[in-house]
């Protein structure tokens, strides 16, 4: 080995770390850690910096809402009345008096169940179809125009058709979720597959990876950021669609809960349900985003 040459060039930091330890003494620097109390204090102030602004904004919004709806003749209840009217529902989300007279937890879980089924189906089929369209030029030419047209069809427009086909509310709702969330998954997956750098394909070819290995070891990790973008849009759309679909199919579900509350003029219950729907949608989005950031760790960087 030509060690003498390396030694003479050991000033360069890149080279130094690659040279054996004999040529240069390796100094390890351990970052100094602040004392515990200081770290807790900075941690708390970080949390406060994130929490205080939204709390202030929410408080202001509630105040304006209260002032506006306190007047006589206001069509919507002020927040104080919403809380008073729906206190039973807030404190006891788990009651079940049979039929559709259930706590909000059961309505939300029924909706989530439908979304989970429809969305899971859409994820699997969407990634598979997206891979096909991204990988094969002929599949793209054949399928892409159809996808581009079908994806513009509003979710609820599918509902009568699926009711006619399935003759039951439950599978129809699941189908609506499926058909709503599949398009962004297909399209983003296809883009991700098409954008796999030629370099990675060359590596796969030199290593003679077979189709299955290529799919798992190159395609999925390389396209993962795109696939997860599609999945994240998809989960948002499914949650948007479920409420509308449930309003029409009835039964247990947060969509029907809202519709039922409207029919019995319980405006406060509608407002409470909207808050729950918003929070659940937010949490769903965050879950998919969190999975994405775990799975695609290191993928985005080149």
């Amino acid at each position: 080995m030509n060690m003498p040459i390396m030694k003479s060039e050991a000033e360069s930091p890149v080279l130094e770390s690659a040279a054996p330890a004999a040529t240069a003494k390796v100094l390890s620097l351990s970052p100094k850690r602040a004392p515990l109390s200081e770290r807790i204090a900075t941690g708390l102030s970080d949390v406060a910096a994130r929490l205080v602004p939204p709390i202030v904004v929410i408080a202001l919004a509630l105040l304006i809402w209260e002032v506006l709806c306190r007047r006589t003749g206001a069509t919507l209840p002020p927040p104080s009345r919403v809380v008073r009217d729906t206190w039973e529902l807030i404190v006891n989300p788990f009651f079940d008096h049979g039929g559709i007279d259930k706590g909000l937890f059961w309505h939300l879980s029924a909706s989530l169940h439908r979304v989970a089924l429809g969305y899971a189906l859409a994820s699997v089929v969407g990634v598979a179809l997206g891979t096909l369209v991204g990988q094969s030029i002929w599949a793209m030419r054949g399928l892409d125009p159809i996808f581009q047209v079908l994806r513009t069809v509003p979710p609820l427009a599918w509902l009568p058709l699926s009711l006619a086909a399935f003759r039951d509310g439950q599978p129809s709702a699941i189908f609506v979720i499926f058909i709503t969330s599949i398009w962004p998954i297909i399209i983003n997956t296809a883009v991700g597959i098409r954008n796999i750098p030629q370099d990675y394909r060359n590596v796969a070819q030199v290593l003679r990876l077979n189709h299955l290995e290529f799919f798992w070891k190159i395609m999925v990790p390389s396209a993962a950021p795109y696939i997860f973008t599609g999945l994240r849009i998809g989960i948002g759309l499914s949650w948007l669609a479920i409420v509308a679909a449930e309003m029409l199919i009835g039964g247990v579900g947060v969509g029907f809960f809202i519709w039922d509350a409207w029919n019995s003029s319980h405006i406060s219950e509608i407002i409470l349900a909207l808050i729950y729907v918003g929070i659940v949608g937010f949490v769903l989005d965050r879950i998919v985003a969190a999975i994405a950031s775990i799975v695609t760790r290191g993928t985005a960087a080149s």
Partner: peptide, 13 residues
């Protein structure tokens, strides 16, 4: 016939 590519082509994940 292993290739060392100009732009390293390591898999970033």
């Amino acid at each position: 016939r292993a290739v060392v590519f100009q732009n390293h082509s390591l898999l970033p994940w």
